[in-house]
């Protein structure tokens, strides 16, 4: 049995005792870290959307790139802070929930598919719909796998090791 399994939900997983308690331990600091991170991520996403606009019916490359790169980074981040490093309290809320959560977006993705369909570009819509899903999931998996390899955390069967043994290595 793993003392503390890596979470399923990277934003907050109430199955992880430490995360269940974090709101009680300092609500203002926690929510501020998430808000500031969210602003940074969303402004980055908006900047890319402005720099690389797409005409109606064209493939929305900016959002595609944002969502796939954000997925790669969450894979790297979550392995680092749950399997490798006992991260300080606000690292996950700021970087994971805030920056990457604010950077990537599901609603823009869904609306862009609708807009492409409405513009009569059903093929671009379908390609964008499926392409983002496949590329994003591949990116998460790649980020996790490469980080485990780089930190020597690969074990047979693909099951991540417990982080119990590494507690205190860095702190």
């Amino acid at each position: 049995m793993r003392p503390e399994r890596p979470p399923i939900d990277p934003d907050v997983d109430l199955g992880v005792p430490r995360q269940r308690a974090e709101l009680r331990e300092g609500r203002a600091g926690l929510l501020t870290a998430i808000a500031v991170g969210g602003m940074v991520g969303a402004v980055g996403r908006h900047g890319l959307a402005v720099a690389f606009p797409h005409a109606p019916g064209e493939f929305p490359w900016a959002t595609f790139a944002v969502n796939v790169s954000g997925c790669l980074l969450i894979g790297v981040l979550m392995v680092l802070i749950t399997e490798v490093w006992h991260a300080p309290r606000l690292v996950r809320p700021f970087l994971g929930v805030g920056v990457l959560g604010g950077y990537t977006t599901f609603s823009t993705y869904a609306v862009e598919v609708q807009q492409a369909v409405a513009a009569g570009a059903a093929r671009a819509a379908l390609l964008y719909l499926a392409g983002t899903l496949v590329a994003a999931l591949t990116a998460v998996w790649s980020g996790m796998t490469l980080t485990r390899m780089a930190t020597g955390r690969v074990i047979a069967g693909g099951s991540p090791p417990s982080n119990a043994g590494s507690r205190g290595d860095v702190e």
């Binding site: 399923i8 990277p10 934003d11 969210g38 980074l73 969450i74 894979g75 959560g101 996790m144």
Partner: peptide, 15 residues
């Protein structure tokens, strides 16, 4: 809505 919704969390959870 952009920050409320997320692809990174969704992707990580699925994997």
């Amino acid at each position: 809505c952009g920050a409320l919704t997320t692809y990174s969390t969704f992707g990580y959870e699925t994997v």
